[in-house]
Amino acid sequence: MIELKILTKKFGSFVAVDDVSLSIPSGEFFGFLGPNGAGKTTTIKMMTGLFKPTSGQITINGFDVVKQPLEAKSTFGYIPDHPYLYDKLTGREFIYYMGGLYKMEKNDLKENVERVIDLLELASWVDKKTEDYSQGMRQRVTFAAAFVHKPKTVIIDEPMVGLDPRSARIVKDSLKQQAKDGASIFMSTHILEMAEELCDRIGIINKSKIIFLDTRENLHLHKIKYDGNLESVFLELTKEDKEL
């Protein structure tokens, strides 16, 4: 369960996120779309505690991210847009490391490390140091690390950056599996087809504000207005001269 209430983030006089309110119930797969610089990553960074909101409230699984950060963080897994890892650790060590940060007990951790290595198909290279990984390999390790503690909520920023088709399929399947297991997923993406394929509900942010928020089914009604294409809906809604 994720709730954003009139969330705002300002950098000096620049308003990056402006009065954003969202409610994502447990078990929902939510797609967060928007053009570059719209405020997607800033919103996610506030949700994950990397940025402090200027105003507003974020509640994840019943915990206020600002007032109860440790409790809130222990319930979600985060996959950033750039999968930076510690170069000198191996993929397996990084997953263990993340599990440790989430206070997982050794036996449980060991079992879950093997589970996510299987889920993300990392076994053949997971014991190499991450400095030797490609972007896609790093991305998959980040997914594994986010899933290791079986989070109730998964927050993902641009999951497909640098992934080859096989890796993309593995990642999509793993996300579907998480959703099937009951996790709510908040995913920002540029790939409209992916949002259409995976998400129950889609929100579009443009110029710091939410401009569209509806279910996948209702989105089809919008698509009919245009040429039956989600891309056309997106381009129309996020047009530069569009009146908000």
């Binding site: 994950t48 505690g49 409790e71 963080k73 950033p80 930076y84 890892l85 940060l101 989430y102 690390a145």
Partner: peptide, 9 residues
Amino acid sequence: WSIRSAPIS
């Protein structure tokens, strides 16, 4: 990011 987003102060 891995520490900042994890439940550790």
